[in-house]
Amino acid sequence: MTKQQTCGGCLHFVADAAELEREVPGLKILSSAFGSVRAETGLCRQRDFFCVPEHGCTDWRAAATAPQAA
């Protein structure tokens, strides 16, 4: 893993708020992906768990464009 190979720039990482709400149905019922408490937490589609952009692993794949954390 190099300095650039973090979840923040990974193809598998979902941090966009609207996309995250689509990925986790029910999240917006009594919560929101647009809230401050989530901060930059995102979903790793590859491993199906939550992490933050500064995490990283050997499954890293370059995203076409870095996901925008919202």
């Binding site: 893993m1 190099t2 190979q5 973090t6 923040g8 647009f34 401050s36 995490h55 870095a66 954390a69």
Partner: peptide, 27 residues
Amino acid sequence: MNEHVATKESAPAPMGIKALWLKEDWW
């Protein structure tokens, strides 16, 4: 299982000031 770690030195820039218009709390 592949290792999955958080490394501070590899951290991308945090959302920072963009949170002021990208988070509903601020709006």
